[in-house]
Amino acid sequence: MSLLEVKKVSHSYGSSRSFWRPSNDAQVLSDVSLSIDQGTCMGLLGTSGAGKSTLGKVILGLEKPQQGEVIFQGQNLYKMDSKTRRGIRRDLQVVFQDSYSSVNPRLTAEKIIGEPLENYEKLSPAEQQRTVANLLEMVGLTAADMKKVPRQFSGGQLQRISIARAIALKPKMIVLDESVSSLDMVNQMNILNLLNELKSVYGLSYLFITHDIRAAYSVSDSLAVLEKGKIIEVCNDKNDIFTSQQPVVKNLVASILPEHPRNRTLSAGKSRA
């Protein structure tokens, strides 16, 4: 049985409708179905405005879909009492794109990472401090960083803190919404390596939302492509993405930037090769 199942989810955003005013809702998701197994990573690709982030929110339980259901560990996410939901919260975590706005600027790193622990685990202060120190080391920072506040960290470091916070409760699944897109390439690589390591050690599952095929390819097992609210391609083997016949997917693959100048597509520089 898969860990997460999204069944025929449709959702739209729009203004309030009334009898004499036809609704002009924007359909963001239509009939989206996908499933993610324990210990695997699915990459969700798509251009801006395709509905990727909305699907992420629906999966996290933050945006109730108008139709369809989300099943996490065999339970419907939108039809459960608050007590069960509290338990599910623990197993389902999120890391957003903008690390600066997803942490409280007044708290120290220790408080930021300790917050989920305070809510779910009853640890003594000393124990909690040790756990936080361990988590910091796991993401490549040091225990000395505990007393720093967000503005003393770089974007890459702060993103690691967000990841440390997400893994603090040993969740089953993390939704990564463009989590590495704003980082430089060395930082990106470090975080992707860390994610891969956590996946193999703890059997974590990810939904990796991005527009960058290169990043998605390096962490995902399977790939799905979203276009105008519809899943237009699901590749259970990520290599299938390169042979897809869908024009949108072909266009995405064609815009991958070359790894080496000899493979460049532009005319002016190519003549020298």
């Binding site: 390439m185 060395v186 690589m189 390819y217 390096s218 390169f242 042979t243 790894e259 080496h260």
Partner: peptide, 30 residues
């Protein structure tokens, strides 16, 4: 620079490129 990086830092940068299947194979596939 891409074929013969000299400085350690350049080598590190080049290694940080995400790995995709070889580009020649890829263009065949597409």
């Amino acid at each position: 620079l891409f074929d013969y990086p000299q400085h350690d830092y350049t080598k590190k940068l080049l290694q940080a490129r995400p790995v995709l299947p070889a580009h020649e194979e890829l263009s065949k596939l597409v």
